[in-house]
Design a protein around this nucleic acid. Structure first.
Length: 945
RNA sequence: GCCGAAGUGGCGGAAUUGGUAUACGCACACGACUCAAAAUCGUGCGGGGUAACCCAUGAGAGUUCAAGUCUCUCCUUCGGCACCA
């Protein structure tokens, strides 16, 4: 046996694969296809990241397994090469971005090949190749043709460092996603793509996909679908109306004012009619001067100003309500105006408290005490009632009643008699039940709550309409408590932490405690409508549509998703293929003239005015109008780097096509992508954008399915050793080249798959990598044992390993798949001799993980064909258990011994065998056996007393 | 605040979905081989106790013959969204 020489073996087989191209695929209608996809990398100057290796290896393992299950597998690779880092490098060094890209992709290609990934290299694509971006531009023209690409003047997020406009998605906490610089606001004409036209389908069609649930949830949250009502509030003495959007039309009777966003068109129109024009104008000016972060910070105190002298009319009760302007209302969501219901909306509550506006309760929360519900057959009695919270300010304890005949602890509680008010009733009850005479009334804790429970002490089903009054104890002075009261309950002082749902008998406890501890009592939950005229008594949730109709409103759907800002004022992107003509306006470049190629320039830096550097290339900018042939100017904006990645997977189906972005026949064969793995960070950007493009192309009949990806999974990030992000500036980047050199690509692959659960983030750990290398060496050394060998135990282990590795790969549980192979190796090592057949199976299972060493061992074992072309091993369910099994013996649920017996022994025999064992007899002696539980081939539990 | 995921040895992490908690690997300790070291091989390795045993999966209750797993009540960490009416 030769020693394991990873360098020789890996180079040998990489050379062989380079010439034989075993992973080059052709469309073959006779074979079922499988399309595996990784996110094609951005070829940065840093070279391949260990994170790339993790996700590429995962999909490589899956691809290799699928091939051996008989699929025609397309596992392609390409370069998402437009983008800022390359451009910034060009600005700094003056080297053309295309040359930088060429150098970087050469490095990436070399590194990926050194890892033995089974890509079909013949289909390599590059988004910066004019032959590729010709089709990116072509798709843009289709959007333009359908009216889904349009120009709009808007304030954009402007990064002053990168001198680039950013999409909302690229702004994180008010800062540029890339460089962390604080984003400014700038007015600019921008190209937009109307993704909102697809919002509903992007949401709904998630149902059809097999994406990880967390990915679907994140996309849904981002799209932000919500249903509600649009309702018009007429202006008093005018025929104008303010249209508001609300998801809570059931609270219409609780409206105490209306709020407009500062940008709302109505403000301009009516500002001069207000009694306080100057004040309002000053407020609007102040808001304009705020930056995005101040504007959208929910924690900041709300500000606003009333439009004095102008009133809106509530359509449900003709009440006049004031109109306010406040920047907590967003101009670009809903109608830019809201009806304010402080009693049932936390933001409105804060605002109303600050400016002294009214609060009107119109929905009463409903609670049933689940631990003490109504009992059938008992009388139902409704009544007004009060609970009293008394706190001792000296120690913050709260006075409660511990009931003697019921397992309850409650606040002081009682009925409201006759025409007593809440506070009177509370004082009376407190005096009767506690005797404390000097209580300082603090406040009533908000509106009533309807509470259902069984009042055991009265033997009735109670429906109580509770208020809570809150008092503080002034001193200990108290009356004697009556004997009757003493018989029912005793007094206890409890810490606030001991007043919880599980310790107190009170179905609506959370409401009271929230109101006790917070100043914001807005109740957002549905319930029973009150103070709402003919709607009183209705369930608020189910009355929404009815009250909307009564108010003359419309039931509508709204989305948080905004249209996609598609312009970038930069050089290194696809030029937007249109021409501006003084006579004809915006004219698309004729399709046969595509691509509009990027010209070579001397200076890549963006201009101070915020225009693309392309604007200064006069030879390029000045052109003729394709329509009227008069002098015209080219559009100088380029596309964002999300453009090329929005359709790249389609190009893989037919990467060299000159007549179309791909031949429909090839698309029909290969698409949709069967399994797409990528980062969670792309869930709301790339993944959503590409689903949008795909649906658009589907509507044009250009792709065969409405969804691009059948299944989407995601990997966890690999962090640097301290748990921070890896970055060149921190100097904590792991270079894969060094690792490949010292321990080999196979060991690196194994290590990355073994280091932890694939979907979780994990910090790089240099120490543990030796174990992976050791594992390969141990597999290597097993070749010496091949001969006449094998027994039932090994047979079982091999079949268990086939089962475990096969299912773990499908579940992306690569770490436990490797662990299963390690266990098998440990067991095989204990044998004098192992059979060739068993060893071959081990090598076959290892092959997707460590393709080079597996191929070498497979050849050593005398196989002529590639291990990667061998059929994936299958297990025999009959061979998963041995003829004898080891069972656990428990006595009263505690492990007391084990039992060797034949598999499938009957329960009675097992019981007898177990009881005969001295270490078991010890525990059962003299006791009565109450029960025996046997779990077949696993466990027996003897319950004694 | 809302949505989601998770809390298990010194560390990364297993646990067939309710059935021997700590698999597998790393680190560590001791032993073998060696002049020596490295590598390799072997043994040990949650805590307490001489032992029989007892205690331990973020904390506390509960359901069950049996709970890391299920239910409640809390706590903590990490991701995503965040004035979306």
């Amino acid at each position: 046996m030769n020693p394991y020489d990873h360098d020789r073996i890996e180079k040998k087989w990489q050379k062989a694969w380079e010439s034989k191209k075993p992973n080059k695929v052709k469309e073959d209608p006779k074979k079922k296809k499988f399309f595996t996809l990784i996110e094609f990398p951005y070829p940065s100057g840093d070279g391949l990241h260990v994170g790339h290796i993790r996700s590429n290896t995962a999909m490589d393992i899956i691809s290799r397994k699928r091939r051996r299950e008989g699929y025609n597998v397309l596992y392609p690779i390409g370069w998402d090469a437009f983008g800022l880092p390359t451009e910034n490098y060009a600005i700094k060094t003056g080297i053309q971005p295309s040359i930088v890209t060429k150098n970087n992709t050469d490095t990436f290609r070399r590194q990926l090949k050194a890892l033995g990934f089974s890509f079909d290299w013949s289909r390599e694509i590059n988004t910066t190749d004019p032959k590729y971006y010709r089709w990116t531009q072509w798709i843009f023209l289709q959007f333009l043709k359908k009216g889904l690409a349009y120009k709009k003047k808007l304030t954009i997020n402007w990064c002053p460092k990168d001198m680039i406009g950013l999409a909302n998605e690229e702004v994180v906490d008010g800062c540029c996603e890339r460089c962390g610089t604080k984003v400014e606001q700038k007015e600019k004409e921008q190209w937009m793509l109307a993704i909102t036209k697809y919002a509903d389908r992007l949401d709904k069609d998630l149902d059809e996909t097999d994406f990880l649930e967390k990915i679907k949830i994140q996309q849904r949250n981002w799209i932000g679908k919500s249903e509600g009502a649009e309702i018009e509030f007429p202006i008093k003495g005018s025929d104008k109306k303010i249209k508001v959007f609300t998801t809570r039309p059931d609270t219409l009777f609780g409206v105490t004012y209306v709020v407009l966003a500062p940008e709302h068109a109505f403000v301009d129109e009516f500002i001069s009619h207000a009694d306080n024009t100057i004040e309002v104008a000053q407020y609007i000016k102040a808001v304009r001067e705020k930056d995005e972060e101040e504007r959208t910070n929910a924690k900041a105190a709300k500000t606003g100003v009333e439009l004095k002298g102008i009133k809106a009319i509530n359509p449900v009760n003709n009440e006049e309500v004031p109109i306010w302007i406040a920047d907590y209302v967003l101009a670009d969501y809903g109608t830019g105006a809201v009806m304010a219901v402080p009693a049932h909306d936390e933001r409105d509550w804060d605002f109303a408290k600050k400016y002294g506006l009214g609060v009107k309760d119109v929905v009463m929360p409903l609670r049933t005490d689940k631990t003490n519900p109504h009992r059938p057959g008992k009388e139902v009695i409704e009544r007004n009632a009060v609970q009293v919270i008394i706190r001792d300010p000296k120690n913050q304890k709260i006075l409660c009643l511990k009931w003697k005949k019921q397992p309850w602890t409650t606040f002081i509680v009682g009925g409201v008699e006759g025409n007593e008010d809440v506070v009177e009733a509370a004082k009376r009850e407190a005096l009767e039940e506690t005797g404390y005479k000097n209580l300082k009334f603090i406040k009533v804790l908000g509106g009533k709550v309807r509470s259902e429970f069984f009042a055991a002490h009265k033997d009735v089903n109670r429906i109580a309409y509770f208020n809570v009054a809150y008092f503080e104890l002034e001193n200990e002075e108290r009356n004697e408590i009556s004997a009757e009261e003493n018989e029912i309950h005793e007094l206890v002082w409890l810490d606030q932490k001991d007043i919880r749902k599980d310790t107190m008998q009170c179905g609506e406890l959370d409401i009271w405690m929230h109101r006790l501890m917070n100043d914001n009592w807005a109740s957002v939950e549905p319930g029973l409508m009150i103070n709402s005229a003919q709607f009183n008594g209705k369930d608020s949730e189910s009355a929404k549509k009815e009250i909307t109709a009564f108010a003359g409103g419309q039931w509508v759907t709204k989305f948080k998703l905004r249209d996609w800002i598609f312009s970038r004022q930069r050089y290194w992107g696809e030029p937007i293929p249109v021409v501006h003509c003084a006579k004809c306006g915006i004219v698309p470049v004729p399709e046969e003239q595509l691509p509009v190629e990027l010209p070579k320039v001397k200076n890549y830096a963006p201009t101070e005015t915020g225009e693309s550097p392309l604007a200064s290339i006069e030879k390029w900018v000045n052109t003729k109008c394709p329509a009227c042939k008069s002098p015209a100017k080219r559009e100088t904006d380029t596309m964002p780097n999300w453009a090329g990645s929005s359709w790249y997977y389609l190009r893989y189906a037919d990467p060299k096509n000159r007549k179309a972005f791909a031949d429909p026949k090839n698309l029909k064969y290969w698409t949709p992508v069967d399994w797409y793995n990528g980062g969670m960070e792309h869930t709301t950007l790339h993944l959503l954008y590409s689903r949008f493009w795909h649906k658009f192309l589907f509507d044009l009949g250009l792709v065969p399915t409405s969804e691009p990806y059948k299944k989407r999974t995601s990997h966890g990030l690999i962090l640097a050793e301290g748990g921070e992000k890896m970055s060149k500036s921190k100097g904590n980047v792991i270079n894969p080249d060094n690792i490949i050199k010292t321990i080999g690509a196979d060991a690196l692959r194994i290590h990355e798959m073994f280091m932890g659960p694939f979907d979780q983030a994990i910090a790089w750990d240099t120490n543990t990598i030796a174990g992976s290398r050791r594992f390969i060496e141990r597999v290597w050394k097993l070749q010496e044992k091949v001969g006449q060998g094998g027994n039932e135990r090994i047979e079982t282990i091999i079949h268990k390993t086939i089962k475990k590795v096969s299912s773990d790969i499908e579940d992306m549980k690569f770490n436990t798949a490797i662990s299963a192979m390690m266990i098998a190796v440990n067991d095989l090592e204990k044998e004098e001799r192992i059979s060739k057949a068993h060893y071959e199976i081990l090598v076959q299972l290892l092959a997707p993980f460590a393709p080079h060493v597996a191929e070498e061992l497979w050849a050593i074992l005398g196989n002529k064909a590639s291990v990667h072309a061998s059929v994936w091993p299958t297990f025999d369910p009959k061979k998963l258990t041995e003829s004898t099994v080891t069972m656990t013996i428990q006595v009263n649920g505690k492990m007391r011994g084990t039992l060797e017996c034949a598999a499938d022994t009957d329960d009675a025999t097992i019981q007898k065998m177990a009881l005969d064992k001295p270490e078991i007899a010890k525990w059962t002696k003299g006791a009565v056996i109450k029960k025996v539980i046997v779990v077949k081939n696993k466990l027996i539990n003897i319950v004694v007393q």
